[in-house]
Design a protein around this nucleic acid. Structure first.
Length: 614
RNA sequence: GGCGCCGUAGCCAAGUGGCUAAGGCAUCGGAUUGCAAAUCCGACAUCGUGGGUUCGACUCCCACCGGCGCCUCCA
C-alpha cells in the first residue's frame, strides 16, 4: 500500500556556478556558489502575506530585498520569474470576516489592495505573479491526493494530515528532530497520528467558506498552497525560496516535506530568509506575539478607528488601502502606533526613504525600526538628490533619464583610459558588484554609492563646472560618472524617479500658508517703513503668481493660487533677497533667508542662482 | 529545556586570520562663501567580557554577560 512511497529524493543536476555570485542558504547554513536548475533562468518564490489585516512594515522587508535580488539577477543576465503568493483563506480571515460581518473575500480584497499599494510605494515592481490560494484549489487538491497515494498523508474525519514520521528528512531546514517538535495541541490533536503531523486539508465547520474535495468540504492547510502554487508557476524544483526568518519552522519545513515527498526531488535549491524588524532593542519582532500581548485593547487595532469612520457610506473596500487623505492628516498619531500604520508611514515619509532604510542593512539582519531611524537615514539620501540637481544645473541633463547599462560588464577599458575620477568610479563599481555578489550585501553596496557621489562632487569642484569650466568633454565625463551611479542604483531600485514630496499635498499647503504669512508680513513692514517700491513689488509679484491680496482692517488676507503657487512665491522672496544683496543690504537679505529658514525653507546660493529646499 | 542568531566609534552600519577596520548621521578643524547653506580636504573605533588555538584574531574554538528569533499564528 505505502510501498512505492518513501522513495529517496533524487538529486538533480544544476548549471555551472556563476563565476562570482554566492547566496547564503538556510538549508546548508552557508554561502554557496549560485547554480540554477535551468541554465540562464531563475525561479523565485517568496512567501507573501496572509491578508487578514493591513500590512505592516515588516511585510515589506522580503519584497524589497527580493525586488533587488531580481534586479541584480537580471543585471547578471538571468531570466527571472518571481512569484509572491497571497494567502487569502485561513482561520484568521474567517474570524475577521465574522467580526466585521463581511465575506472572507471582501476582507482579502481590502487587504490585498492595501498590500499592493504599499509595494508600489516602495518601488517593488518586479513581481511576475501574485497567485492566490483560493484560485489554486485544483492544484492543491491534486498534491494532497498524490501525497495520500504515496503514503505520506492520511485522511482523518474530513481532515487530511501529513505524516511526518514517513519523511526521514523532516526537520532538515529548521534543524530539529521529531521529538523536539510539540505540534499544536489544539482541538484537532486527536485526529492526528502524531502531534507533529500537520494539516493539509481542514474540514469546514458549518458556515465557513469551503471547497469541494475528495474528503468533503473544507479548505487547505496553511502550507500546502505554497507547494501547489510554486509547482504551478515555477515547476517541481526551482531556484530560490524566500520569506521571513520566522517562517522557517513550521511553514517552510512543511513545504519542503510536502513537495519533496510528492515529487521525489529537491524543492528549492536556495532558501533565503530575511531578518525581522523590531521596534526596540528588547521588544520582539513587529507584529509578533509579544507585541500583540502587550497591546491592552484586543479588539481594535491602530487603523480600525480611522477605517470605520470612513466606511459608513462607501460600501466595499474604501480608500484606506492606498493611504487616503485621512491617514495623512492623522500622521502624527501613527508615529506611535505599531502594525497597521504602514500606509500612513509611507504617506509622510515616502516610499523611497523606507526602501533606502531597509536596504542599508543586510537582509538577514534584525533591524530596529522606528520613524526616527528612517528620518536619520533619509538625511544621507539628500546627498544624492543634491548631486542630481547639481548635475542638472551643469549639464541641463536629467539624472532620472540617463541611460545606463542594463547588464553586467567589466568595463576595465574605460577605467584604464579615463581620468582619475573615472578610474575611481570603476573601482567603486567593482566593489559594489562584489558586495552584491556576496549574498546581496546591499549595505556595503550603498557605501559605494556614497563614494561615487563624492567622486562626482569632487569632479565638479575640481573642474569648476559651475564657474565656467564646463566644456563638452568634461561634461561628458561627468555624465559618465552619473551614469555609473544610475547603473548601480537601478540595481537597488533607488532613484528610479524623483522622490515624492514627504507629506504630499497636505504638507505643501501647510508650507504655502506659512510662506504667504511671511510675504504678507514683509510687505506690511515695507509699507510701515514707507518702502513702497518693495511693498508694491510684492503685491505685483503675488498677482502674477495668481494670488490676490486684500488689505482689511484686521490684516491682509490672501486668496487664489494653484499647485505652482508655492514655487512662485518662494521665487518671489528669492528675488527680493537678491535685490537686497545687490544693494549690499545684507541685513535685509539675511533676514529673508533667516525667516524662511524658520518656516522650513532653506536657501542655497549656487553659481548665479539661488535654490530652495524644504 | 531544544534549535539558531546578534553584540564593531555618540548613533546607524559594512567587513577581514596579518596591508590605513567601508560608508552614513552627529561632532571638531580647514578650504570655499559678503555671511550662510551646499561641496571638498582633514580629525574622530582596536571590534561585549574572560580564556584558548595561532608566529599573528576583531575575524576560529570555549565559557560567561547582555539582547533577539523559532519550537503554537506570524514577513
Amino acid at each position: 500500500m505505502s510501498a512505492p512511497a518513501l522513495v529517496t529524493r533524487r538529486e538533480i543536476e544544476l548549471s555551472e556556478p556563476h563565476p562570482s555570485l554566492a547566496i547564503y542558504s538556510t538549508l546548508s547554513k552557508r554561502k554557496e556558489p549560485f547554480r540554477t536548475v535551468e541554465p540562464g533562468k531563475v525561479g523565485i518564490y517568496l512567501c507573501g502575506p496572509t491578508v487578514y489585516d493591513k500590512a505592516h512594515i515588516g511585510h515589506m522587508v522580503g519584497p524589497v530585498i527580493f525586488d533587488c535580488i531580481k534586479r541584480y539577477l537580471k543585471y547578471c543576465g538571468y531570466q527571472v520569474t518571481w512569484v509572491v503568493n497571497i494567502t487569502d483563506v485561513d482561520d484568521k480571515l474567517i474570524h475577521k470576516a465574522g467580526e466585521r460581518g463581511i465575506s472572507m473575500l471582501q476582507v482579502a480584497e481590502e487587504n490585498i489592495a492595501d498590500y499592493m499599494g504599499n509595494l508600489a510605494a516602495l518601488g517593488v515592481d518586479q513581481v511576475d505573479h501574485f497567485p492566490r490560494a483560493t484560485e489554486c484549489m485544483g492544484d492543491i487538491v491534486a498534491i494532497i491526493e498524490s501525497l495520500i497515494d504515496r503514503g505520506y498523508a492520511y485522511a482523518s474525519e474530513g481532515d487530511v494530515y501529513f505524516d511526518v514520521t514517513k519523511d526521514p528528512q523532516y526537520g532538515k531546514l529548521s534543524n530539529r528532530t521529531l521529538d523536539a517538535i510539540q505540534g499544536d495541541g489544539g482541538g484537532t490533536a486527536e485526529r492526528k497520528r502524531s502531534a507533529a503531523d500537520f494539516a493539509l486539508w481542514k474540514s469546514a465547520k458549518p458556515g465557513e467558506p469551503s471547497w469541494d474535495s475528495p474528503w468533503g468540504k473544507g479548505r487547505p492547510g496553511w502550507h500546502i498552497e505554497c507547494s501547489a502554487m510554486s509547482k504551478k508557476l515555477l515547476g517541481e524544483t526551482f531556484d530560490i525560496h524566500g520569506g521571513g526568518l520566522d517562517l522557517v519552522f513550521p511553514h517552510h519545513e512543511n513545504e519542503i516535506a510536502q513537495s519533496e515527498c510528492c515529487h521525489g526531488k529537491p524543492f528549492a535549491i536556495y532558501w533565503a530568509h530575511n531578518g525581522l524588524l523590531r521596534r526596540d532593542a528588547s521588544a520582539g519582532k513587529i507584529g509578533g506575539r509579544a507585541e500583540r500581548e502587550r497591546s491592552p485593547s484586543p479588539p481594535h487595532k491602530a487603523g480600525d478607528g480611522i477605517a470605520s469612520a470612513h466606511k459608513a457610506g462607501d460600501g466595499i473596500a474604501g480608500p484606506d488601502g492606498i493611504a487616503g487623505p485621512d491617514e495623512q492628516v492623522s500622521g502624527k498619531m501613527s508615529r506611535s502606533k505599531g502594525a497597521g500604520g504602514l500606509a500612513a508611514l509611507i504617506a509622510h515619509q515616502g516610499g523611497q526613504r523606507i526602501r533606502f532604510f531597509l536596504l542599508r542593512t543586510h537582509y538577514r539582519s534584525t533591524v530596529l525600526f522606528s520613524e526616527e531611524a528612517i528620518e536619520e537615514a533619509a538625511v544621507g539620501l539628500e546627498t544624492f538628490y543634491r548631486l542630481f540637481k547639481r548635475y542638472h544645473r551643469i549639464t541641463r541633463g536629467d539624472f532620472y533619464h540617463l541611460s545606463a547599462p542594463a547588464h553586467r560588464s567589466e568595463d576595465t577599458a574605460a577605467a584604464a583610459s579615463g581620468h582619475a575620477a573615472l578610474a575611481a568610479a570603476a573601482v567603486c563599481k567593482q566593489k559594489f558588484l562584489a558586495a552584491m555578489d556576496d549574498d546581496f550585501n546591499t549595505g556595503a553596496a550603498i557605501g559605494e554609492l556614497f563614494e561615487l557621489a563624492k567622486i562626482a562632487n569632487r569632479f565638479c569642484d575640481e573642474h569648476n563646472l559651475e564657474g565656467g569650466g564646463a566644456d563638452n568633454a568634461t561634461m561628458g565625463d561627468l555624465t559618465m560618472l552619473m551614469a555609473t551611479i544610475k547603473e548601480l542604483s537601478n540595481i537597488l531600485g533607488l532613484f528610479l524617479k524623483p522622490p515624492a514630496l514627504p507629506g504630499g499635498h497636505v504638507a505643501n499647503e501647510a508650507l504655502l500658508g506659512k510662506v504667504m504669512q511671511l510675504v504678507i508680513d514683509l510687505r506690511a513692514e515695507a509699507r510701515k517703513a514707507k518702502n513702497f517700491a518693495t511693498a508694491d513689488a510684492i503685491r505685483d509679484g503675488l498677482a502674477s503668481a495668481g494670488v490676490k491680496l486684500e488689505d482689511r482692517a484686521g490684516g491682509t488676507e490672501w486668496s487664489g493660487g494653484d499647485a505652482a503657487t508655492l514655487e512662485r512665491v518662494v521665487q518671489l522672496l528669492i528675488n527680493l533677497r537678491q535685490t537686497a544683496r545687490q544693494n549690499k543690504d545684507y541685513a535685509a537679505s539675511d533676514a529673508i533667508r533667516h525667516r524662511l529658514g524658520e518656516i522650513g525653507v532653506k536657501l542655497e546660493d549656487r553659481g548665479g542662482e539661488t535654490e530652495w529646499v524644504r
